[in-house]
């Protein structure tokens, strides 16, 4: 495939799209319509709609990938995997049939969703509590100065979040409030500012075609060109 199709056209598309979206956010460019909306607004809205449509197409691509991968597992009877693959494909078919037949807002679909995915999703999320416990057990050890700071602040946060402790030991709440208001907020602001700057620099590199990691890397021959 030529360099033009593989690199230059995608980079030009990224540049034009990003520039339009930025212009729409920062500027009110004439001509404006009767409601005072810039000409860039409907263009950006269209671009966003294209994004939604492309995402929907991609979902189909994802579904095909799922079917191919799990059909292979079933036909090869992959150890510890194939029964789950059967179950997965059955559920995809069941949800699709009920969704298409009754509609995604129907009581039938809601029942199916609430009694399967909703319950499972809440369970997986809740299991986080257990994972955190084992993580904390290993991590909060006074190995060095940094770890002691983590241990002390973590301990205070734990105690503050135990309602009965917070009632009987109000000083824990005061210390926790100070930790949240000063060191935590300052650190989070620092992370936010630096992350935003990093994202801007990445955006500039991407828009100007200097960073092409998302298109695959340049070969030495392409770099030379």
């Amino acid at each position: 495939m030529s360099l033009l199709i593989r690199r230059q056209i995608p980079i030009a598309l990224v540049f034009i799209t990003a520039l339009l979206i930025m212009m729409d956010y920062f500027l009110k460019l004439p001509p404006l319509d009767a409601r005072g909306v810039s000409w860039t607004s409907p263009v950006v809205k269209d671009l966003q709609n294209w994004g939604v449509i492309l995402t929907a197409f991609a979902l189909g691509f994802g579904a095909v990938n799922l079917f191919i991968l799990h059909s292979r597992h079933i036909s090869r009877r992959t150890v510890k995997q194939w029964p789950f693959s059967v179950w997965l494909l059955l559920m995809i078919i069941l949800f699709t049939v009920v969704g298409v037949s009754y509609g995604a807002t129907s009581p039938e679909y809601s029942w199916l969703y609430n009694s399967s995915y909703f319950a499972l999703s809440a369970t997986v999320y809740s299991s986080l509590g257990f994972y955190m416990t084992s993580g904390i057990y290993r991590a909060l050890r006074a190995r060095n100065v940094d770890a002691v700071i983590l241990l002390v602040t973590g301990g205070i946060a734990l105690l503050k979040n135990a309602p009965a402790v917070a009632v009987n030991a109000p000083f824990v709440v005061s210390i926790d409030s100070w930790l949240n208001a000063i060191p935590t907020t300052s650190a989070m602001r620092g992370i936010m500012i630096s992350a935003a700057l990093g994202a801007i620099a990445l955006g500039i590199r991407t828009m100007t075609g200097k960073e092409t990691g998302f298109l695959g890397r340049l070969t030495e021959a392409e770099k030379g060109g």
Binding site: L202, R205, E211, G213
Partner: peptide
């Protein structure tokens, strides 16, 4: 944070 943007 910013380190991931610099990774590439």
């Amino acid at each position: 944070a910013e380190e991931i943007y610099a990774a590439g």
